[in-house]
Design a protein around this nucleic acid. Sequence first.
DNA 1: TTGTATGCGTTATCAA
DNA 2: TTGATAACGCATACAA
Lengths: 341, 341
Amino acid sequence: MAVTQQDVARRAGVSQRTVSNVVNGLATVGDDARERVIEAIRQLGYRPSLAARGLRSGRSGVLQLVVPELDVPYFAELARRVVSVAEDRGYAVLVRQTLGDRDRERDALEGAAADYAEGTILSAVNPVADLLTGRESSSPVVLIGESTGLGLIDHIGIDDTAAAFAATDHLIRSGRRRVAFIGTHPDASLRMATLRLAGYRDALVEAGLSLDPRLIVQIGSYHREDGATAMSSLLDLADPPDAVFAATDLLALGALHRAHERGVRVPQDVAVVGFDGLEEGRYSVPTLTTIEPDTGEVARLSVETLLDRIRARESSGPAAPVADLAVPFDLVIRGSSPDPD
Amino acid sequence: MAVTQQDVARRAGVSQRTVSNVVNGLATVGDDARERVIEAIRQLGYRPSLAARGLRSGRSGVLQLVVPELDVPYFAELARRVVSVAEDRGYAVLVRQTLGDRDRERDALEGAAADYAEGTILSAVNPVADLLTGRESSSPVVLIGESTGLGLIDHIGIDDTAAAFAATDHLIRSGRRRVAFIGTHPDASLRMATLRLAGYRDALVEAGLSLDPRLIVQIGSYHREDGATAMSSLLDLADPPDAVFAATDLLALGALHRAHERGVRVPQDVAVVGFDGLEEGRYSVPTLTTIEPDTGEVARLSVETLLDRIRARESSGPAAPVADLAVPFDLVIRGSSPDPD
DNA sequence: TTGTATGCGTTATCAA
DNA sequence: TTGATAACGCATACAA
């Protein structure tokens, strides 16, 4: 069925070894032999078998990217960049979607695909420390965003607390006094939410503002709808907030939507700040102030770190220390929370 | 390094063949042998090699999904669903991103990965008829959205013209008389744009309205920014439109944004309708009327059709006729173009 | 029911 | 420079 190097060799009157050399541009092959091989390849329509190459070399040329939901813009942007960077480095990307399901996360980390891929970039919603510690599969994993906080695995992210502080501080400096936070999660071990909440708290404390627990809203998931629901509950308060910091842009956009529905003006009645730097926030009405992480850098560093691990494993060199890289972020001020003037 | 079935066999005191049988739950294996094998697998931490299995069986268990940009919401939603459906069918998904680049599209179709994957689901922006006709790789391809119009390959999509007609007709029925179209493309062979433009035209003609070429705006790409730019040019007209039908939701959302920036009220001054049924349009201000295709069905049919082809190829049965499936769509009326009352 | 032997298409070792 | 030849890990035809 498929044309093999053997077939090409016969046709070109050389050994299969020579064909392999030509294909991989490896050893020095005589000009005449090379030419005959190339011609034979063309005539026969030979196409290399990745399966065989992978088996032989032990390298599949595939990285695994694991995200909760591909259509959540933050993950979509991440996927875009990871796929691009991986391609630049000669790798294809196998995408797994966990839907926040723990079994799927486990399978992505432990299943056969985890071995087939040379490494995995994991962006999890659930705490994954336990999944990583007793891992059977030996292929390297780099964690994005959520950190285990245990320093047991390479991690790329941003300083969530500092960023949340910057966002909240901006609201306070622009004159807001009752600043709400949308985005705590029932599962307290969700570090992302915990860290951002901490930054929010720090900013309030530093400004000498009191912490009103009714202004801290828990959500079930991180979709627009959850932000809208949370906003409703805030607007229903006897003394509603004059500002909202949402843990993600999607929550903020949901909040924006609900405020408009209820006739509450943004930013006049309530200012809103999000987190993620989504493209969508540049076009919302009003445009959304946000914390914009350098996502390109997150993707680049993730892939690079992973490839470093893979290479180190091959050369069985000394294990590099666990990376814990914080990528820079910007506070981008837009219409939803203008600076006072 | 890696534990093989051979190792397990030695440990369990059986032949490698028996281990293989146990792993695949295939033939009837004696209870005691099975137990010993399972125990040995546990002790040694045996993990099957997908590379070897793939080489031997000729089936990689991988499908390839090719899209222009993973972070364009329409493709992100598509990817989400395709990955989910594929997983249900026991397949992993290798994602390729073409960025609209023809060379990347070609590589996705012709490169080694095209052979490694058992089949490809392609959502292209460029016309791909030529890429598909003289194809070297023999793995099946299913086309999504854009059709070659030649009936030479399985295609899943919606009736673009009928949908565009419905959208435009809705605007006309709600009393609009100067309806603009955003989304023609310099590359006239981009069928999606052509078909939607045709539906727009048909609706105007049927309503006895004149076609004003100045109301048909060409764009460079399909991002929010392009929609905003197009909207600007429309609003700059001496006699601007009272309604806009955009070929995609992203364009419509950009248009919405620009209208708001310019102080033009939607829907009072100008109504806006999009196309794609994005989640984002449920939360925009105002919410966006749109053509909502059954994306879940698109994904499901794509994967099913592809798997059918793969199976047919294996059993070398009679080739099924080329599928050209149109998935249903809904016109979802929201705030950007309310029905008159 | 289980074992033996072979080959999937490559790469790579060893000679020549 | 090139040719035999041996793995890579697994699935399966054929035997037992």
